[in-house]
Simulated scan of single mutants.
Amino acid sequence: MPTVVKAVEDSTRIRANRATGWPVTAWLSKLKPDPLKRLHLDLGAAGKQLTGTARTSVPKASGVQRARVDTEVRAFADHLSDDLAQPWATAVRRASTSRLTDLGDRLDRAVASTDLGAERIPVWAGLVRVLQWLLIMAAIVGGLWLALLAFGSYARLPEPPTPEVWGFALPTLLFLGGILLGILLALVCRVLVGLTARRRAAAANKRLRAAIAEVSGELVIEPIETELSAYASMRSALAVALK
């Protein structure tokens, strides 16, 4: 889970920074590998259809991790069967580990089918992207205008009238304003991107925990409950017979 949650946060940060960053340099983020794609978790809308055959690239559990899971499951079964007679306690322990061999594949499918909510950039990031390109276009227009004025002066052509805004020549304002505002907007958005990435990681963590709880409930809790239910039924039958 920590690997996947960290990948959601990093992937969201990369994609949102690419959308909201200054377009002149934002393309450099394409050189960074997307963490979710490396884990084969960037499945989009078709992800749930693919999970029947596709596997993720989430690192497999080590021997130590599998041993910890086995120990925790057995400790859980021992706690529940502490007051039972030895045959029933043994049955509960056996039931708790009866399906542990299926745990790895089922958890892999659970992770792959969970909607991590990271495949789309935030709506506000899309709006910022449009604004960034408008600022770049303004800077290009201003730069071409200044180049035309410089060429006309060099060629000794009559200088066309240049409008002013707030005491600044309009082409200069377009050129410098487009660049400076774009850079400033990208820096401000980095804070918003960080908040969005952490929020999406927290949401993914919650969904993953729910998916893992469902798998563990089916593979560990249900077999134990079956044995405990059989034990309760036997106790009830004996109580009726002894009356």
Results as ranks from 00 to 15, higher is better:
1 M>T: 05
2 P>V: 07
3 T>A: 11
6 K>A: 14
9 E>I: 09
13 R>S: 11
14 I>R: 15
22 W>Y: 15
24 V>K: 13
27 W>R: 10
39 L>W: 05
42 D>A: 15
43 L>T: 07
52 G>T: 00
73 V>F: 02
74 R>M: 09
76 F>N: 06
77 A>V: 04
77 A>Y: 12
78 D>K: 08
79 H>L: 11
79 H>K: 13
79 H>R: 15
83 D>S: 15
90 T>S: 13
94 R>D: 15
96 S>V: 06
104 G>Y: 02
110 A>Y: 08
110 A>I: 00
115 D>E: 14
116 L>F: 03
123 V>R: 15
131 L>M: 10
132 Q>T: 04
136 I>M: 14
138 A>R: 07
140 I>D: 06
145 W>G: 01
146 L>Y: 12
152 G>I: 00
158 P>T: 14
163 P>K: 04
165 V>K: 04
166 W>V: 08
167 G>V: 10
168 F>N: 04
169 A>M: 03
170 L>M: 08
180 L>E: 00
180 L>S: 00
186 A>C: 00
193 V>W: 04
196 T>W: 09
201 A>F: 09
202 A>H: 08
203 A>S: 03
203 A>H: 10
203 A>F: 07
206 K>E: 10
211 A>Q: 06
213 A>I: 00
227 E>A: 04
228 L>I: 04
232 A>N: 14
236 S>G: 09
238 L>A: 14
241 A>K: 14
241 A>Y: 10
242 L>I: 14
